[in-house]
Write a protein that binds this DNA or RNA. Sequence first.
DNA 1: GATGAATGAGCCTTCATTCAT
DNA 2: GATGAATGAAGGCTCATTCAT
Lengths: 203, 203, 203, 203
Amino acid sequence: MPRVSQMHLRRRREAILNAAMEVFVTKGYQVATINDIAQQAGLSVGALYRYFPTKADMLLALVRERLGRAPELFARMAGRAEDPWERLVRCVELFTSALRVRHPGTGRLLLVTLAEAVQDGEVRQGLHDRFAGLVRYVEGIVAEGVASGRFRADVEPRTVAALLLSLADGVAIYWVTGTPEVELNAMRQSLVAMLRAYLLPEP
Amino acid sequence: MPRVSQMHLRRRREAILNAAMEVFVTKGYQVATINDIAQQAGLSVGALYRYFPTKADMLLALVRERLGRAPELFARMAGRAEDPWERLVRCVELFTSALRVRHPGTGRLLLVTLAEAVQDGEVRQGLHDRFAGLVRYVEGIVAEGVASGRFRADVEPRTVAALLLSLADGVAIYWVTGTPEVELNAMRQSLVAMLRAYLLPEP
Amino acid sequence: MPRVSQMHLRRRREAILNAAMEVFVTKGYQVATINDIAQQAGLSVGALYRYFPTKADMLLALVRERLGRAPELFARMAGRAEDPWERLVRCVELFTSALRVRHPGTGRLLLVTLAEAVQDGEVRQGLHDRFAGLVRYVEGIVAEGVASGRFRADVEPRTVAALLLSLADGVAIYWVTGTPEVELNAMRQSLVAMLRAYLLPEP
Amino acid sequence: MPRVSQMHLRRRREAILNAAMEVFVTKGYQVATINDIAQQAGLSVGALYRYFPTKADMLLALVRERLGRAPELFARMAGRAEDPWERLVRCVELFTSALRVRHPGTGRLLLVTLAEAVQDGEVRQGLHDRFAGLVRYVEGIVAEGVASGRFRADVEPRTVAALLLSLADGVAIYWVTGTPEVELNAMRQSLVAMLRAYLLPEP
DNA sequence: GATGAATGAGCCTTCATTCAT
DNA sequence: GATGAATGAAGGCTCATTCAT
């Protein structure tokens, strides 16, 4: 029975995080109240405090457990394609689909969290870790492409990776604020074209 | 101190906005208090309210008068170079220098404001206007390059512009949060190389 | 202290209203502070807001639940005397005793509330309802007296009722402000004599 | 020239009082702001403070100079009719017409002021003085009627006067709050009939 | 003398957190 | 273990009063 209880606890914790995420991305972290979250979760205020000691801890948990897992998630979903170029393109596609289909809300969470990072060191650290992880992953792909001669020799893997991920999050942020200029599909195609022109040597 | 000049009023308004900006980008909009701003401005709380009816109006004024003027500022500073390519590169450089030298703080303001846009329609609109204006400006440069045959014929000016500006703001946001992976100079150089490979036809 | 009984909630609500009434009639509505009321009630400020969403709602509740019940209270206490004249005299007596003994403070509340009615439509409506209810009740008595031939045939029940109640509240207001000219007992006796002379036909 | 200046000062003082009265009776004393009054008067805030040291003094001046003069005003307007009964009826008529025609606003001022009297001793004293003065005046008429044998011998002049004036102010207060049950003309007629039945011996 | 910008104490209200039931 | 009523510090905003211009 202890196992059941453990699972029960974990489930409830996740439910609370889901509720917190929903509320945070809708109203923003500071404006969201513990009561909002409790209502969204269908729990009492007191119950929430058995899982998270403060409101800030809920955000931090979201940063670490939702945003922070992006690197491993990407690694898993980008798959094991042999060709670095294929994998890179797959990454770009993943980002687009994640934004639109798979994890809507994560983009908003990123934005809300980034704003909180301005004054909260732990949140900032969590976001840095995520970014660094993603950069490292994409950097690896690019480095592999360079090493294998598939990509142009003079590209800096780290810089290109940082560029790509800044772009990805920049797009995400404008996408979630509903800026009409941002048309995901067209941008993805143009980006892939741009990367192709840049990375792949002329045939 | 009544019957002060119009200039005095205008100056003081700017001083308050400066103080508000400083406080907002340091603590975030919601956490910043009117008292913080008053102290930063060296004025009393009441004085602030002669210039802005609410705290939200201070943020809105910043969005409109600082962020919102980015398009015209860019147009003015990018200059009248004949060559579209030169102007595009100049834009990329401008963004980097603005971030680091000319308008430090504006990047942070952008971030803080974006988060507020999640729940404040007017702020959101202000940011949309800024983004749309910038996109329009860069789009014009790219379209000119395409029209003149200087750029590849199959690039979509609007999409490339949106891509570039999403990237710019993405970089800005990570830059202001002190993400160590973001090294502005290297990124600028790689970006220019990428754009050159994409936009300029092979010689 | 959650999951408290409905009765506890109701009691506490009444306690808060009692405290609010005490403070309002002592300092006036506008001058009274929420802190005053909380202290008088022996509760925290926050607790008050679980029972009333705003300070204005406390006043409104008092208007509706204390002043507004005057008509039914009167109907009950005036009893079921057969003779309209007896009932009318009983009403006059009731008013005097209510002012002095039974509901001291209600007179002051009436005054404080009337002043607030100048600018608060809901309060005004509540007072109108109370006045209309009282007029209707007294009007009924007079009409009965006229119909039964006990009273002079040419009196207008509605007008006499309005006159009586205006007088009652006028007396109440001066009484609560401690005007020395207002001596309740003497006034009651003179009023009864006046009504007798007016309403009852000569023998 | 000092005389002209004196008159100028007096005029301006009156203008300020007029403005204050207008604002007080519209919003209530506490809610009215000095700025409201300054705007209504077409003067600067500073100017007001050259005539009245505090906001409370404006109300007090109104109590003393507008409400407090009611007794002498009544005495003058009620005229020098020989018959006490005529003069009494004239008083009742005066009150009605004053309320409706001559001094609209005074009724509201009375109400607003009464509420303030709850906590302001000077205001309370001013209102007591007014009431006492009016009572004394009406009492004189009644006493004269009794002495001359025109009225019934067993009426108490003081009590009847207090009754009449409480009624008058009670009516005024409900009249100014717009209570529809209060129809001035009908009430005046019934009141006169009632007084006739009470005061005048049967022929 | 007049003006109205500036002051700052004080108010209503909110909400993270606690803890009695 | 769960609940949600209670707490009270803190924030946005107002406004009577002052005083530099």
